[in-house]
Design a protein around this nucleic acid. Structure first.
Lengths: 236, 236
DNA sequence: ACAAAAGTGTTCAAAGTACACCCATGA
DNA sequence: TCATGGGTGTACTTTGAACACTTTTGT
């Protein structure tokens, strides 16, 4: 995640207009950063938004918060409208509210982090590797940075990885998830030792076959966010 | 921090009304949780709000976000309107947006954590010990919980304590801050060792006198938030 | 038989934890 | 001289980090 700037000129109205009969001084929206793994790399889902000029911009799925829905519900709605795969994890990230972040109208946006077990294709959804995102609209560069930072942080002391992986993975699969998100390699033996000692995962009693020794398959012990002692320091 | 519930009935309009001519579906406010130490205990600043019934409720300082101000600026404005002592630290906590959290109108409130070096008295401000808060309006019980949790967490791996202490403190003073916030005792020798090894503080070359051996005075090396290795695990 | 990934233990270094005594001063 | 809090060091335990070889299978 690099591009943290908001692009200069982008003057069309943002997503759904304000409800008729209102001229809200400050509107509330949610934006969801959906992460998933594809080909062993961490990707984020983006929606194309057409800038007035030639430039093509992308933004995370989002929209106005409806009068009767909570922020969490709004985030889930916006996620599911665009991204089919069921979200395993959804957590509030940060509220972005600089005047001018959304040119032309004042919008405070509450950003969410979503984790999906797969990066399924769908109409209008574009999956990009997190380390090579296209130009982003609004302040979504900063949103992306915050999301990755949060995910990396929680990887070290929670079981958050369950959001990115279906049960029936090998320990090597799990390690690859960690390595993809953190962007660095981990020692296989130490990683296995810690993950097993913390009882983060449990063996399913099945194996996966391939042109090599079969690998034992595991599932997460708990599929809600759990804080553990310390899973990672510098190597894991 | 205990009371996490929002009280049942509280039907007057909240703080400043919506700007004239608007019926905003969702309004945006900020709420600031100001923490400071008083007599060695962590206190929070609250404003009395008069419930329609007999019950007296309290709420954290807050207010609507103005069209041209950022969330951070709105938070600082609301803090300074009520609490005189200059805030050393102000950080966004979480956005609370359940429908019904503010009876009668839909308000999404972005909560902030503020740290002050002193708990100065001022008109309308009431300082309460964090472990003995009065009944709180809205969902401010949950806000208080989140604020304390954040402060306790960051104490363990940042220099956030600078927000609660003026330069010219003894290491014993600093340790008392940690103990007050965490609610548990720390080993003096190990605490000194870590704080000094991390160069969190630096000696000022002055001492404080009392009916005992003089104590060396210290100041924070850095007065912006800095992340350090690991300051606390179980004892510090 | 070979390639490819799975699985496993030990050693060393660093950090955390527990703990007790002397010091300097003001009253 | 005594009461009060300030200041210091060491031994032990736990945790982290580095590291290489054997196993099992499919082709």
């Amino acid at each position: 995640m690099s591009d943290g700037r908001r692009p200069g000129s982008d003057d069309r109205k943002r997503r759904s207009p304000a409800p008729p009969g209102t001229h809200a001084a400050v509107a509330v929206a949610v934006d969801v950063v959906p992460f998933a793994l594809r080909e062993g790399r961490l990707h984020a889902a983006l929606i194309g938004v057409r800038a007035t000029e030639e430039s093509r911009l992308f933004a995370f799925p989002g929209g106005r918060v409806q009068p009767e829905e909570s922020l969490d519900v709004a985030a889930r709605r916006c996620l599911e409208r665009h991204v089919p795969s069921e979200g395993r994890f959804l957590e509030q990230l940060y509220a972005f509210g600089e005047p001018g972040r959304d040119p032309g109208s004042r919008v405070v946006s509450v950003a969410y982090l979503a984790l999906l077990p797969r990066a399924d294709d769908a109409d209008g959804v574009h999956w990009y590797p997190c380390d090579d995102l296209p130009p982003l609209a609004y302040d979504h560069g900063a949103v992306a940075d915050k999301a990755l930072e949060r995910l990396q942080g929680k990887l070290a002391y929670t079981n958050i990885a369950f959001g990115l992986l279906e049960d029936g993975f090998t320990l090597a699969d799990l390690q690859r998830v960690y390595e993809a998100v953190l962007g660095r390699g981990l020692d296989r033996r130490n990683f296995r030792k810690k993950v097993l000692a913390l009882e983060l995962v449990q063996p399913l009693g099945r194996v996966r076959h391939g042109p090599h020794r079969p690998a034992e398959l595991f599932g997460f012990t708990e599929r809600a966010l759990v804080t553990v002692e310390t899973l990672l320091t510098k190597k894991g």
